[in-house]
Amino acid sequence: MRKRLPRVSTQKTSARERLLNAAANLFYNNGIAATGIDSIIKKAKVAKMSLYNNFSSKDDLVQTYINKRHSEWLDLYRNRLKKSNIPRERVLAVFDVYLDHAAFEYERGFRGCGILNAAAELPAKSRGREAVRKHKDEVEAILQMHLLEYPSMTQEKSESIAEHLSFLLEGAMARAGLEGSSEKIIHAKKLATHMLETL
């Protein structure tokens, strides 16, 4: 059963929140380049001036969107971590977070990692791409942190396995986005589970 994305009544949210929620929805469903300022304003049901009172430019709005997605991911991760008692469960919790994202009810279906999709549209060395890179680095660092909880794990080995798991996870997410299904992520989690059982 798909989970609905968090929705809050537009009458109880600020213009900034409405703009960001509208942009997040349109960026994910249609892409950044295909989403114009006017469509964001229309979906948010605010005056055009509200956008420029809250965001200096569309680039600023995109950056805020990426930061919001990162925060959402961390919140899901922390919730998963509360249910994880041993190192293996904590490593696999990262895979579960990606499954949580895939289970959301998107207007036009699941399209993979929202911020990776955004990065694909942004120019090299842009602030947005750098923010996405830092997010992916943090995910890999989290994997390594939990691997280091294994009694016999060395720093070098944890780095290698974390990188391997990160590649497995991101590859599965890309394929899942193409197929509009979580099946590849589920399979990736099974492969990761098997790998962890050999440690």
Rank of each mutant, 00 (worst) to 15 (best):
129 R>D: 04
117 N>T: 06
136 K>A: 13
104 F>A: 07
39 S>Q: 14
111 R>S: 12
86 I>E: 09
93 A>V: 01
46 V>I: 11
130 E>V: 10
53 N>M: 11
61 L>C: 06
73 W>C: 05
118 A>F: 07
132 V>G: 04
81 L>C: 06
85 N>A: 08
110 F>I: 10
40 I>N: 02
96 D>I: 01
91 V>S: 07
90 R>P: 05
83 K>G: 03
59 D>P: 03
59 D>L: 02
119 A>M: 08
135 H>D: 13
143 L>Q: 10
99 L>Y: 11
116 L>Y: 05
141 A>F: 05
57 S>K: 02
141 A>Q: 13
144 Q>I: 05
123 P>E: 13
86 I>P: 08
65 Y>M: 08
139 V>W: 08
142 I>Q: 10
130 E>W: 00
127 R>W: 07
97 V>D: 05
60 D>V: 05
54 N>F: 09
74 L>W: 08
113 C>L: 02
90 R>V: 00
57 S>F: 03
40 I>P: 03
122 L>V: 13
124 A>G: 06
87 P>A: 09
117 N>Y: 00
67 N>P: 03
104 F>M: 12
78 R>P: 04
123 P>K: 05
42 K>M: 09
38 D>M: 08
130 E>M: 09
128 G>T: 03
38 D>T: 14
50 S>G: 09
87 P>N: 12
97 V>K: 02
113 C>A: 00
130 E>R: 11
57 S>W: 02
50 S>W: 07
67 N>S: 14
89 E>T: 00
61 L>A: 07
97 V>C: 11
112 G>H: 07
38 D>W: 08
95 F>C: 15
109 G>E: 10
41 I>Y: 00
79 N>E: 14
146 H>Y: 09
51 L>V: 09
102 A>N: 00
123 P>D: 14
69 R>V: 12
84 S>L: 02
54 N>H: 14
93 A>F: 03
63 Q>C: 13
140 E>K: 10
68 K>S: 15
92 L>R: 15
